[in-house]
Structures are given as structure tokens and as C-alpha cells.
Design a binder for these strands. Sequence first.
DNA 1: CTCTAATCCTACCGCGTAGGTCGGAGAACC
DNA 2: GGTTCTCCGACCTACGCGGTAGGATTAGAG
Lengths: 169, 169
Amino acid sequence: MIFTTKAEYGVRLLVELGRQHDGAGAPTPVSLKAIAEAEALPLAYLERIVALLKKAGLVESTRGAHGGYRLTRQPAEIHMDEVVLALEGGVAPMTCFVAEDGSSSHGRVVCNHEADAGHGCATKLLWTRVQGGVVKALAQTTLAELVAFSNRPPQTQTATAVRNAAAVA
Amino acid sequence: MIFTTKAEYGVRLLVELGRQHDGAGAPTPVSLKAIAEAEALPLAYLERIVALLKKAGLVESTRGAHGGYRLTRQPAEIHMDEVVLALEGGVAPMTCFVAEDGSSSHGRVVCNHEADAGHGCATKLLWTRVQGGVVKALAQTTLAELVAFSNRPPQTQTATAVRNAAAVA
DNA sequence: CTCTAATCCTACCGCGTAGGTCGGAGAACC
DNA sequence: GGTTCTCCGACCTACGCGGTAGGATTAGAG
């Protein structure tokens, strides 16, 4: 598989925040406990995940009673490549892939067993293309889309997902 | 990361076979030992990997002395989606993704915690798009391309890889 | 006819990491 | 001051990846 549950839970957490997000600048924050119950996720684990999102500046928090988290931007302005990068710490199709700087979305990608033979590793071309496809698919999806998708009646969700995926491909 | 070393080693193995592959129908087979030495990979591990490729019909073998493996098709006719599918047993971006039939390239994809809540999982749309991007990138790459890439002088490889990746994206 | 080089097959193992828990310390609101 | 939150770091466990061991089988070479 590609992504761990960090990405899964983190995205679902953001969707839950995006659902409560109205146009106002600073709405009432949502507590992790409420999100954990709504999505049936372990609270203690969510704490560590949301810390990653906060460090990336995607959410902000207010402590204390009636505190919680809220988005720092409009859901339509949050693209999933940034989200997954914050949660997973990079999007690399193979262990030998390391980005030169932190962000793997635009940075140069380097295979670290480059000099083992005269003719480099032939798979580098392949993994580079795969990574490009993943990042592109992530960047084209916004949080607002996922929020809208999650509010749709279930029987139409499958067809919509397939249609959107076909549009991407 | 996305893929394990099974995919990495398997692709490199195929590249090595493709390099020896001339136009003739049944050329002299290449032994695993030769490939293991050329690519500096553990022989015993390669045995298990090549078994997957054989089961998928991508290579055929002759046993006994001076035996080995050879491709069943021209390198230009071997697309990487089929290869990775054979090696990794499916291309799923998340554990909850399972294909209805064996092949994940065209089969319908289903999230197995579909019915846990009223509003399905919002991440399904995202993972479907990601998987589409990966499969597309794999399907667009043939073994012949990788063979040609691996024979190129090293100093031009990086620039070429980036250019090709940009063309895909 | 045997020796040898190769494919085949199955069981085994160590180790890193994903996934999750626990307990507690600060911060705000009543 | 108690309650409700965020925050933080240590800790634990199951599992799968990556690799090894050892053998059985097949077929060409001499």
C-alpha cells in the first residue's frame, strides 16, 4: 500500500473540520474528542496526527475548556499534496528516493544508490514517473471537494468517485 | 513509501533480461546467478521474485545446466502496470482498498470499511484518484524504455528523467 | 552415467516500523 | 478550583519486509 493510517486519519480529521467551517474567519473550534467520536478513531492517536497538521500550519488550536482546532484557510484553498506531505513526511515511491529539501512536491528527487554501477538504476525513471502521477493527483484534489463528497448520499458516491478518477486519468 | 524491493528487484531483473533480448524468438536464457552478480542482488531472494514473474507469464524458464530465464514478449510490449501488479500483488494506495478481481488496473475498487458510517469515508475519492495516477504512470512505461534508459551515459540520465517525469505530469 | 549447473520449493528468522496506549503537565473557561 | 481541553514524550506490540538455509528436481556435459 502507499499511505499509512496517518494520512487516512489526518484527511478524515480535516474533512470533519471543513464540514464545520463556515465562511467566518475564526469559527468555534472543534475538539478532538468530538472528531474522534464522529469518525470512530482513537483519540490519543489523533492527538499525534493533528500535531503534524499544526506544525505545517494547516490548523490552529486554542487550548483549555471549549477549545479545539480549526482550519487556517478555506477548504477550497487546501490541496491534498500539502496535507499528505505534512502527514507522511514526503511522497516517495521507494525507499531509495529522498528529496533534496523537505518538500517532495517540487524538489529534485534523487536515488541514493546512484553510483553503485556504471549505468545508474534503471528503475529511477519509473519511480520518478509514478511519483509525478501521485503528486499530481493529490494536488488536483482540495479539501472542499472531499467535504462535498462526504455529504453526498451514499448510493451516488461510488459512481461519482469512478467518474472523477477517470477524469484524472 | 509505495513499493517494496520486490518491485525494484523485479524490474531490474527484467531490464537485465531485456538487455540480452534480441529480436529472435527464443534466445539463450540468462541464469539468475549472472543477473544477481550484474545487479549486486541476493540470489536466493531473486529466485522468489522471478517466480512471481513466471507465474504471471512474463518470463519463461528452462531448467538444468545452461538454463535460465528469458522474456516471453518483446520489451516494448511489456508495460509496467502488469509487472508491478505481478510483483506486488496489486496497486492499492491504502489497506482498505481491495480490487474485486485480481487485477487492480481496470477492476472496480472498493473500500472495505464502506458501511461503518452513514456518509462513507471521504478519503475514498482521494485514494481512487491517487491510484489512477499511479496506474497511469505505470502503464505508460514499457520495459523497452527502461532498457534504453539504463544504457544511456550517466550524466544525461538525471536531466532525461526529470524531463520525462514532467512530460507525464 | 555421473557430475554439475541451474531452476524450484518451503520453512525459517531478525528487525524495523506502523499503530496504538498511558500518564502526566500546561491552559483556558465556568 | 475544578473541568475540559491541548500538548508532550515514553512505552509497547504485532506484523511484514528483506533475507537465509537447505534441499529436491531437472537437464546438459564429459
